[in-house]
């Protein structure tokens, strides 16, 4: 089993989850736990940096589908950044780019949060 890992750090008042490895039906619960924890702690400005994410299956997309409304209804967002083309392609097949804020760089997400911009 290839490792899936999540590293959590803060950029000012925003929370960044750095994903690495393979996100599938086996590893999706780790992402779910991390997101839940942030939301439970009233952290609603979340950036998911996918730079080292090598693979995603629909179970991984499902986690984002389950929590985006909660976060947005509380005035926040989950912004996704730094995806490689392979991972972006899977999001694109399901039409995610019109529904989620998917950005080139983590700094773009910080800037949009600073300017209070949403999708």
């Amino acid at each position: 089993m290839k490792n899936f890992k999540i590293n959590h750090r803060e950029v000012r008042s925003y929370d960044v989850l750095e994903l690495s490895g393979e996100l599938d039906a086996h590893t999706a619960s780790q992402l779910e736990n991390s997101l839940k924890k942030l939301i439970d702690n009233e952290k609603h400005h979340i950036i998911v940096n996918c730079e080292d994410l090598d693979y995603i299956a629909s179970a991984g997309l499902g986690v984002f589908m389950a929590y985006i409304e909660d976060v947005r209804s509380l005035g926040g967002d989950i912004k996704l950044t730094n995806m490689n083309p392979k991972v972006y392609n899977v999001f694109d097949l399901l039409g995610f780019p019109t529904l989620y804020d998917i950005l080139e760089e983590e700094s773009d997400a910080v800037e949009k949060f600073d300017n209070n911009e949403s999708k």
Binding site: A57, S58, G62, M65, A66, L94
Partner: peptide, 10 residues
């Protein structure tokens, strides 16, 4: 997303 449903896309 509105219904907070996941899955059903595989």
């Amino acid at each position: 997303i509105k219904e907070k449903k996941r899955g059903g896309v595989g």
